[in-house]
Amino acid sequence: MEHLIDIVLLGLLMITGFAIVRMKSLLAVAMLTSIYSLLSASLFVVLDAVDVALTEAAIGAGISTILMLATVALTRDEEKAPRHTPLLPLAVVTVTGAALIYGTLDMPHYGDPAAPVHQHAASAYLHDTPGEIGVPNVVTSVLASYRGYDTLGEVTVIFTAGAGVLALLGYRTRRRNIQGPGIRKLVVLRVIAKLFFPLILLFALYVLFHGDYGPGGGFQAGVIFATGFILYALAFGLGNAQRVIHHPLLRIMAAVGVLIYAAVGIEGILLGGKFLEYGVLADDPVTGQHLGIMLIELGVGITVAAVMLIIYYGFVSRQD
């Protein structure tokens, strides 16, 4: 049964991918990309990667699509045909693909429990997490503690993107609320947005603090939090949204999140441990781990939410 779903989803992904190559309308391509991302999120669920699925759905299908649509709205919608016949690209792609397929021939089989990936480090994570970290979600324990440094790098990447969009697109604060034409006038949309706005924020907090037990964590929570505000901005106009969270505050939030994360790490050094050693944060190492994971997830959430909104404001404020 699982194999069947797997094959169907992969087939749909292929169809979507080819459609993206063929389509000339960039609006349609952006929507298809969103579908592609959503399909891969579903595939991740089938492949047991629930955390990844949640992230892909929120980031790939959600925020990325919004950015693509915003860009398509600013550029021309139709794609011109390439000037050259794509013989060289075709050759490059064929060679690369052939090399990869050649490489698969010695790979362990798909789903094989005896494959090397499942033997070495991974089995230790699964075995030791309950005793050393004490959270049921092993993805969270690896993400936040065993490989917490990668995650610090990841927050820094997001922060870099925020700083980059700030440098490239800047921001304009709207004093008046410009009522553009289109969907902003819709009463139904406004009522629903008002109804759902607090619920989305609540859900973000749930995802943030439930990440130890189920799928979720700082990244997903931050993106969902930002999505709530994006919905608000869509329904009530950018000016009103900027009145709720204005740009200087976003800068501070983006910086503070990274600083919280790094501060937890440096606190480990100051208490006589290594960088990012959470065990020394409390008397009991497991409590220390809990505390550390909680704090860094909070930092991640704050930075991600702030950067998502900086990026969104940046793209939308170019719209006039």
Partner: peptide
């Protein structure tokens, strides 16, 4: 039941 009709409504208006 809330988002479905809203989305369709917004699409139709657009």
């Amino acid at each position: 039941i809330f988002t479905g009709p809203t989305a369709v409504h917004a699409l139709a208006q657009a």
